[in-house]
Simulated assay, not measured.
Amino acid sequence: MNLLFITSNRVGDAILSMGLLSALAARHPDARITVVCGPLPAPLFAHHPGVVRVVPLAKRRHGLHWLDLWRQIAGGFWHTVVDLRNSLIGFSVPRLWLIRLGRHRADSHVVEEESALLSEDRPTPPRLYLSKAQMAEAAAVVPGGRPVLALGPAANWIGKQWPAERFIDLAQRLTGPGGVLEGAAILVSAAEHERPVAGPVLEAFAGQQTIDMIGADLPSTAAALARCRLYVGNDSGLMHMSAAVGTPTLGLFGPTDDQRYRPWGEQCDFVRAPQGWRELIAAVDSGAVPGNRLMDGVTVEMAQEAAEALLARTEKADG
Rank of each mutant, 00 (worst) to 15 (best):
L130H: 09
P123N: 03
I281C: 13
D68N: 14
A282D: 15
G176T: 11
I33R: 01
L16P: 00
R272E: 05
A243M: 06
P29L: 09
C268T: 14
D83Q: 10
S22R: 15
G287Q: 11
G50K: 05
H48Q: 13
V148I: 12
M295D: 00
L118A: 08
Q304S: 10
A216C: 11
R278D: 13
R27F: 06
L280C: 10
E305W: 02
A31K: 04
R60L: 14
R166H: 03
P263N: 07
N292Y: 12
H47L: 07
T247G: 06
P255L: 07
D169A: 15
G102R: 09
D68F: 12
L218A: 07
F270I: 03
R32C: 11
P274M: 09
L250M: 10
I15P: 02
S17P: 04
L238N: 08
L311K: 08
I168H: 00
T221L: 13
D68P: 05
I73E: 05
T256W: 01
A136S: 15
T7L: 04
I15D: 03
Q161P: 01
Q161R: 15
V188Q: 01
Q304I: 00
G144L: 09
L40H: 13
V55L: 15
Q161F: 00
R260N: 10
V271Q: 00
D121W: 11
A226L: 07
A139V: 08
R105Y: 08
G319F: 08
A273T: 15
A216V: 05
K59I: 13
D258P: 15
S286E: 13
A307R: 02
V11W: 02
P94V: 10
L69M: 09
L170G: 00
Y129E: 14
L20P: 02
L225H: 01
R146Y: 10
H240C: 07
M295R: 01
P255I: 08
G276Q: 11
P153W: 01
T175P: 01
E113S: 11
S87M: 09
F77D: 14
Q161W: 00
S108P: 00
G38T: 08
T249Y: 09
I186L: 00
V142A: 10
V141I: 15
R227L: 12
E120N: 04
W66V: 04
R60P: 07
R195Q: 08
L101G: 14
E315I: 08
G152D: 03
